[in-house]
Design a protein around this nucleic acid. Structure first.
Length: 579
RNA sequence: GUGCCCGUAGCUCAGUUGGAUAGAGCAACGGACUUCUAAUCCGUAGGUCGGUGGUUCGAAUCCACCCGGGCAUGCCA
């Protein structure tokens, strides 16, 4: 379906062609929702920029567009204001028919892509290492992006690039053996397991020696060693899946394509680079020189793909993974969700596949970079003792703190319900805090702020949803019985809400193209805020409300609830019916 | 040294890719509860958008140069 922005863009484009000629068909009419109601519902800002091209003053240009436009069933009134803004007042009937169309659309007015396959690479924890706060962002942001793209109609392939290979596995396997690796061994705490192995590797020469030999055995494909290695992976997956389940992300074992998956493809990468004429030698290592990268002396800056001892590096693995995703998975777009410290690395990897002409023209590569989670001291978030914060601990604390907030409020919820609300609100708050600010920036972690009922937080949004559920519960009304075509927009608060509801599609669309989930958060916050204003001003069930007004407000509320629920779902956040 | 990113109210953040008087929340102050749940709403106050130039009808947004801060900079990932 066409939202107002799309519909107006088409009408304005036609008017521009009618007024100035076919050569202006590609001009963007610059339609935006008006920031201020006194400037109408939407505005077209095209007249000012067009004025120079057609050699006329902007207000004349605006007048010609207004004369030529067919306002069809949507335009109530068009006004020219200021230097040449065209302010559009929409017909109420049009808004209502649009609301009805959105309400009957299972995608709530989100345009569906005509196919296309997108690989989203996210989370990527390391085997035998505890997931920590550093994994939160990749996992949460990546999951939201995967959900949004799937909702847009893309075929989304999630890829969890587990770190399951490398020299550290020598010490980890030896440590596992010493811990008594039996068939039913469980590692209760990955963090101490890893730290213990590391400490022994540093302190015990005998252990270090065994670890080195074990690496050779692993790389040589020794059966017993591979079995132990597999044990480590299974144990780690058990931990990861527990975290994913509590966090509520989509990742499953089927999404795992670990580093080791690419082991047998690494020699091909080197051969292919050689065939492309891009493989060079430098100080005994094999390297490529991606264009545009220079070292401190201004010389070409290498990316090492094969060490002087013959070993491969993560650049090699990433090239192999990229080739696999383009050639075997047939992806049209490949999205990497990692922290911004890897920006240069990915820029070099992407540049390399471009230079080798490995990337088909239609394939788009994106590095979705994000900043660091900071503590109150504005330094990377750590525990009091200076340790990294375990992801599990973070989630447990979120739930506990949410439970504390709930307990403060009087509530008739059962104990089980309270637990569930604490889980949904706590985890939702944690994820929303991570998603709601521009991902490229670092953000300051603050429990009180993310759990606050005011402001741009998950609890505030969930509360708006809960209030709507409360209305239907109180009125004993089945949501399925409301009819959006019966909506009336008599009050300003109702109209504001209606306009906001119609913008869900473009909000989702802008996340799909920019890969910035915070845009959806901003939208949902404005929607929830608009609902709360409406809730204050526009009684629904109270005495004295005419039946048709009541039905209208119920329909409006129902659509807000659906939009909030769907929007939060796209962010990977649940709702509850009462809190 | 070089490259990338960031700098907006006391604090935490938005700002729809160049549009109208830069917006929220917190904190401060003043209002609204026999309630469809006050877990909310309404109002007041708070700004040299790091700085200086430039581009143009118009700049927080684009370009240049500075100032601060973060990150990355060949054989870890």
């Amino acid at each position: 379906m066409q939202d107002p922005t799309t519909q107006l863009s088409i009408a304005f484009s036609k008017a521009i062609v009618a007024a100035f000629g076919e050569e202006y068909a590609a001009i963007d009419p610059l339609i935006k929702p008006s920031g201020n109601p006194k400037f109408g519902d939407y505005q077209a800002n095209v007249a000012m920029s067009l004025a120079k091209r057609v050699g006329d003053n902007p207000r004349n240009v605006a007048a010609k567009i207004v004369d030529a436009i067919d306002t069809g069933d949507w335009g109530e009134k068009l006004e020219i204001a200021g230097p040449g803004f065209i302010n559009v007042h929409l017909k109420t009937d049009y808004l209502i028919s649009q609301l009805a169309a959105v309400a009957t659309d299972e995608h709530l007015g989100v345009d569906q892509a005509s196919g296309g396959k997108v690989v989203v690479d996210y989370s990527g924890p390391n085997v035998a290492k505890e997931m920590h706060v550093g994994h939160l962002r990749s996992t949460v942001i990546g999951d939201a992006i995967a959900r949004v793209l799937a909702f847009e109609g893309y075929n989304v392939i999630r890829q969890n690039h587990l770190g399951d290979w490398g020299t550290q596995f020598g010490m980890l396997i030896e440590n596992l053996i010493d811990a008594g690796a039996g068939a039913d061994t469980h590692i209760s705490d990955l963090k101490t397991f890893y730290q213990d192995a590391k400490k022994r590797f540093d302190d015990e020469p005998e252990f270090k020696d065994r670890a080195r030999k074990r690496v050779v055995a692993l790389q040589g494909g020794d059966e017993k060693t591979l079995e132990l290695w597999g044990k480590l992976i299974d144990e780690s997956k058990r931990h990861f899946n527990h975290a994913y389940q509590l966090l509520g992300v989509l990742l499953t074992d089927d999404d795992i394509r670990a580093e080791s998956f690419y082991n047998d493809k690494l020699p091909e990468v080197i051969t292919a680079l050689e065939d492309a004429g891009k493989l060079k030698e430098s100080q005994g290592a094999k390297v490529v020189y991606p264009e545009g990268f220079k070292d401190e002396e201004g010389n070409p800056f290498p990316m090492i793909v094969c060490k002087s001892d013959g070993g491969f590096l993560y650049a090699t693995t990433d090239l192999a993974a990229l080739r696999y995703r383009m050639n075997d998975l047939k992806a049209d777009r490949i999205v990497y969700v990692t922290d911004s410290r890897q920006s240069q690395h990915f820029a070099m990897v992407f540049q390399t596949v471009n230079q080798c002409h490995w990337r088909p023209d239609n394939v788009q590569l994106d590095h979705v970079a994000f900043g660091t989670v900071l503590g109150p001291d504005r330094k990377p978030f750590k525990t009091r003792s200076g340790d990294t914060v375990k992801l599990i601990d973070l989630m447990e604390e979120a739930v506990n703190r949410a439970a504390g907030v709930i307990a403060e409020k009087t509530s008739d919820l059962s104990e089980d319900d309270q637990k569930n609300v604490a889980r949904v609100v706590g985890i939702g708050a944690l994820k929303y805090a991570d998603l709601s600010s521009d991902r490229i920036k670092d953000y300051v972690f603050d429990w009180d702020r993310m759990l606050a009922l005011e402001g741009n937080t998950a609890p505030y949004l969930i509360n708006a949803y809960v209030r709507i559920q409360s209305i239907f519960r109180k009125g004993e009304i089945d949501v399925a019985t409301v009819d959006a075509s019966k909506i009336q927009l008599g009050e300003d608060a109702e109209k504001t809400l209606a306009l906001k509801l119609l913008q869900f599609g473009s909000a989702v669309q802008s996340v799909a193209s920019s890969l910035e989930p915070h845009r959806l958060c901003t939208y949902l916050y404005e929607l929830a805020s608009g609902f709360h204003s409406f809730y204050e001003k526009c009684p629904v069930l109270k005495d004295g409300v005419e039946p048709d007004i009541k039905d209208s407000r119920l329909a409006l509320s129902a659509l807000v609830a659906r939009t909030l629920k769907e929007g939060l779902n796209l962010l990977g956040i649940d709702v509850v019916d009462r809190m």
